[in-house]
Nucleic acid binder design. Structure first.
Length: 654
RNA sequence: GCCGAUGUAGCUCAGCUGGUAGAGCAAUUGAUUUGUAAUCAAUAGGUCGGGGGUUCGAGUCCCUUCAUCGGCUCCA
C-alpha cells in the first residue's frame, strides 16, 4: 500500500493512504472541521471533498470562511437552481453557471418562453425545495463522445456541446445531484442540504459567451447561505448600501441633477455640487503646481484632421457624436473625445529642447463621448465629463521617474480622501487580437515594460489584465468599488510612444539631432464626475470637512437671535469657513434635524445664553452636542481639524 | 444597442378587476418665538414621461417613443 504525503497550510506534513479523499482527511483532523468542510483545495485547485488524492499534494480544507469555500457553495447552488429550472421548464437549455463575487448566476436559454422577474419567486421556491432534498453531488468522468451524446440525444443542448468541443477527452467530468446532470469540472459541496437559504436577486439578458453576435440568454442571479440569518444580514447590508447610492444622495444633498431636455448622460451641477467639485479641482491644481505641471486650456471641439492624425477618427469616428459642420465652408469639427491631440499641438507650438523636458501640460478638460444608452448610469457613466487630464512629454530616460511621480500623486489623492480599498490594474494589449491597437510592436514592448517596471519599483501591488489597454498604449488603472460593489476605473496613467510619432513631435537633442519625446497621459481623478460619484458613496455623503460645501449651519433658537446669528456668520466667514443661517421660524429641534439630514458637519446653536456670553453651542453631525465655546475656539477647532488631516497625509508622503 | 423592470404633485409613494386623481414630506401664507433629530392651521400644486390606438369612457388595456434602474456588450 503506497503512501501519500499531504502538506497542510500550517506547514505540517502527514501521510495517508493513496486515494484518500479530502473528507477522510478532514475527519482525521477533527470532527468540527469535517462538519464545517465544504470543499477542499488540492495543489491549489478547488475539488469536491470526495476527490481521491492520488499523489503527494498540498491540501487545504475549505469552509464558509474561505473565499473558495463560499465559491464552491455558490457554484453548487447554481447547480441546484438549474435542477429547479429543469423541473419547471423541461425545455430549458443551460449555458454556464459559475459563482461570482457575491453569489452565482446561471445563463439559461428558455426557448420561446420569456422569463420575467415575477417568475423568480416560483423558481426560488423550487430551488429551496431541491436543496432540502439533500441530494449528494457526485462527480464522475465521462468520455468526450459520451458527453456529446448526452447533450445530443438525452438533452439537446448546443451550448454544452460547444463547451465540450473545446475540452480534451479524458478531462471531462459530469456532476449529478438528484435527477440533474451537468457538465462540470467540480468544486462542489458534498450535499445540497447545506444550502439553507437561497435568494434569486436578479434577472438579466446576457449574450452567450459574452459575444453580442451570439444569442442572448436569460441570466438568473442569486446568492445562498448556510444559515437563514446570514441571508437576512446580507439583505440588510444591501439595503444600507443602497442608502449610499450617489444618485440618491446627489438628489438629497442637491449636488447634481439630470434633465431630459438637456439630454441623457449630461449632468447638471447644482451650486453645492459645484462648490465640492471646484474644491477638488483646487486641491488637484495645488498638488500639480508643486509637482511642476503647467496649466493649459483648449477648446471643446477640434478639426476632423486632428483626430485623423491621432487615430481617434479611424478607431471611434463612426461611433462618436456626429461631426459639427461650419455653415459656409463645410469644415468638419468633432466634439473632443480626449484632450491629448490638443495638447500635442501645444507641444508643437514652438521648438522644444531636451533641456525643456519633461513638459507637463495640465487641463481640466471637458470631453464628450457617445456611450450606449443602456450603459449610462448616474455620474459614473456619462456622455460629457471633465478629466483632470495632463500630458507629460519627456525623454526616454525620464519615463520611469515621471511615471513613478504620477503614481505618487494618485496615491496622495487616494490617501487624502481615505480611499484605502483600491486595486491597481496594469492594462496590457490583448494577447491575440493586435489589430485593435496602433503603433509598432517595439513601441508597445517599451511602453508595457516601462509600466510594469515603474509599478514594481514603487512596490505597488498590481493585477495584470490583457486586452484592457487603450488603443494607443498600455495603462496603469486605479479601480475603486461603488456602494453596490461595482468596480470603476478612477485614476489612470498611460505610457504612449505612438501619438508623438503620429503628431511628429520632436525635441532638439544635445547633439543637435532631433528626437521623439515619450508621452504620459494621466488623470488621478479620472473624471470629476465619476470621482465625485465614488466619493459620495465612499463617505455616504458625509464629506471631509475641508471639502464639504457647507461646513457649518447656524441655528438661532428663535427669530429674536437673528442678529446675533448674522454676527456669528460674518465672524466665521472672515476665517473662510463656509456657513449659513437657518432663519426659518421653526423649533430648534426641527432645524437640527434638517441640518443633520443635510449632513452639515457642524451646527452652531445660538440663543439667549450664547448671545449674552458671545459664545456658540456646537453640535457635530452624527455625534451630538459638544458643548458651548467661544466663536474663536470654534474657528480653531475647525481649522485644526482640517489642517490635522491634511498635515497627516503630507507627513506620510515624506 | 440588446434582455428584463420601472415612470402618478418638488421628493417618497397609494390608486382593486377601465368609470374623468390621493397621502406624507417639501413649498406658500398665517399663527407660534421656540434650547439639541419633525409646532399648528390654511392654501396652492398633477393634460398620471411623450405620441398614437381600442373603448361611450384610459393613470389603469394595446402599439410606439423617451428616460431611469439591474445586467450583457462596449468603453478614447
Amino acid at each position: 500500500m503506497s503512501n501519500l504525503r499531504i502538506s497542510f497550510p500550517d506547514g505540517s506534513v502527514r501521510e495517508f493512504e493513496k486515494g484518500t479523499s479530502g473528507r477522510q482527511i478532514a475527519e482525521s483532523i477533527s470532527r468540527g472541521l469535517a462538519q464545517k468542510a465544504l470543499a477542499c483545495e488540492v495543489n491549489g485547485v478547488v475539488r469536491d471533498l470526495s476527490f481521491p488524492i492520488e499523489e503527494d499534494s498540498t491540501l487545504k480544507i475549505l469552509t464558509w470562511d474561505d473565499t473558495n469555500g463560499k465559491q464552491a457553495f455558490w457554484h453548487s447552488t447554481a447547480h441546484i437552481l438549474a435542477e429547479a429550472v429543469q423541473a419547471l421548464y423541461p425545455h430549458a437549455k443551460f449555458g454556464i453557471g459559475p459563482s461570482i463575487e457575491n453569489g452565482f448566476y446561471y445563463d439559461i436559454d428558455f426557448g420561446d418562453s420569456v422569463i420575467k422577474e415575477e417568475d423568480l419567486a416560483a423558481i426560488e421556491q423550487k430551488t429551496a425545495e431541491m436543496a432540502a432534498k439533500n441530494s449528494t453531488f457526485r462527480l464522475y468522468p465521462v468520455s468526450k463522445q459520451e458527453a456529446l451524446d448526452f447533450y445530443t440525444s438525452k438533452h439537446d443542448n448546443e451550448y454544452k456541446r460547444e463547451l465540450i468541443e473545446n475540452l480534451n477527452d479524458g478531462e471531462i467530468t459530469f456532476c449529478d445531484q438528484g435527477d440533474f446532470t451537468d457538465l462540470c469540472r467540480g468544486g462542489h459541496i458534498p450535499e445540497t442540504g447545506l444550502v439553507k437559504a437561497v435568494k434569486l436577486t436578479n434577472i438579466a439578458g446576457a449574450y452567450w459567451r459574452g459575444n453580442e453576435k451570439n444569442k442572448m440568454l436569460t441570466r438568473i442571479y442569486g446568492i445562498s447561505f448556510p444559515k437563514k440569518s446570514m441571508l437576512d444580514e446580507y439583505l440588510t447590508l444591501l439595503e444600507e448600501a443602497r442608502k449610499r447610492d450617489h444618485r440618491k444622495l446627489g438628489k438629497e444633498l442637491e449636488l447634481f441633477t439630470f434633465s431630459n431636455n438637456v439630454g441623457a448622460g449630461l449632468p447638471l451641477w447644482l451650486p453645492k455640487g459645484t462648490e465640492l467639485r471646484e474644491r477638488l479641482e483646487r486641491f488637484m491644481r495645488d498638488a500639480q503646481r508643486r509637482m511642476g505641471y503647467l496649466p493649459v486650456v483648449t477648446p471643446h471641439i477640434g478639426n476632423k484632421r486632428l483626430y485623423i492624425t491621432s487615430g481617434h477618427y479611424e478607431k471611434y469616428g463612426k461611433d462618436s457624436f456626429k461631426p459639427i459642420l461650419t455653415p459656409e465652408e463645410g469644415e468638419e469639427y468633432f466634439l473632443k473625445p480626449m484632450n491629448c491631440p490638443h495638447h500635442c499641438e501645444i507641444y508643437k507650438s514652438k521648438q522644444r529642447s531636451y533641456r525643456d523636458l519633461p513638459l507637463r501640460f495640465a487641463e481640466f478638460g471637458t470631453v464628450y463621448r457617445y456611450e450606449q444608452s443602456g450603459e449610462l448610469s448616474g455620474l459614473t457613466r456619462v456622455r460629457g465629463f471633465t478629466q483632470d487630464d495632463a500630458h507629460i512629454f519627456c525623454r526616454q530616460d525620464q519615463v520611469k521617474e515621471e511615471f513613478m511621480q504620477v503614481i505618487d500623486l494618485v496615491l496622495y489623492v487616494f490617501k487624502t480622501l481615505d480611499f484605502t480599498e483600491y486595486t491597481a490594474q496594469i492594462s496590457l494589449r490583448d494577447k491575440v487580437d493586435r489589430a485593435r491597437y496602433i503603433g509598432s510592436e517595439e513601441n508597445w514592448e517599451k511602453a508595457e515594460s516601462a509600466i510594469i517596471e515603474a509599478a514594481a519599483e514603487k512596490g505597488l501591488p498590481t493585477v495584470v489584465e490583457y486586452g484592457e489597454a487603450a488603443f494607443y498604449g498600455p495603462k496603469l488603472d486605479f479601480m475603486v468599488k461603488d456602494a453596490i460593489g461595482r468596480k470603476w476605473q478612477l485614476g489612470t496613467i498611460q505610457v504612449d510612444y505612438n501619438l508623438p510619432e503620429r503628431f511628429e513631435l520632436e525635441y532638439v537633442a544635445p547633439d543637435n539631432g532631433r528626437e521623439r519625446p515619450v508621452m504620459i497621459h494621466r488623470a488621478p481623478f479620472g473624471s470629476l464626475e465619476r470621482f465625485v460619484a465614488v466619493l459620495i458613496e465612499h463617505c455616504a455623503g458625509k464629506f471631509p470637512l475641508w471639502l464639504t460645501p457647507e461646513q457649518a449651519m447656524i441655528l438661532p433658537v428663535s427669530d429674536k437671535f437673528g442678529d446675533y446669528a448674522k454676527k456669528v456668520a460674518q465672524f466665521v466667514k472672515n476665517y473662510d469657513l463656509r456657513a449659513s443661517i437657518d432663519e426659518r421660524s421653526e423649533k430648534i429641534g426641527k432645524k437640527i434635524r434638517d441640518a443633520e439630514l443635510q449632513k452639515v458637519p457642524y451646527m452652531l446653536i445660538v440663543g439667549e445664553k450664547e448671545e449674552a456670553e458671545n459664545m456658540v453651542s456646537v453640535r457635530r453631525q452624527g455625534q451630538g452636542d459638544l458643548g458651548t465655546m467661544s466663536i474663536e475656539s470654534f474657528v480653531n477647532l475647525v481649522e485644526s481639524e482640517i489642517k490635522g488631516k491634511l498635515a497627516q497625509v503630507e507627513k506620510e508622503e515624506v
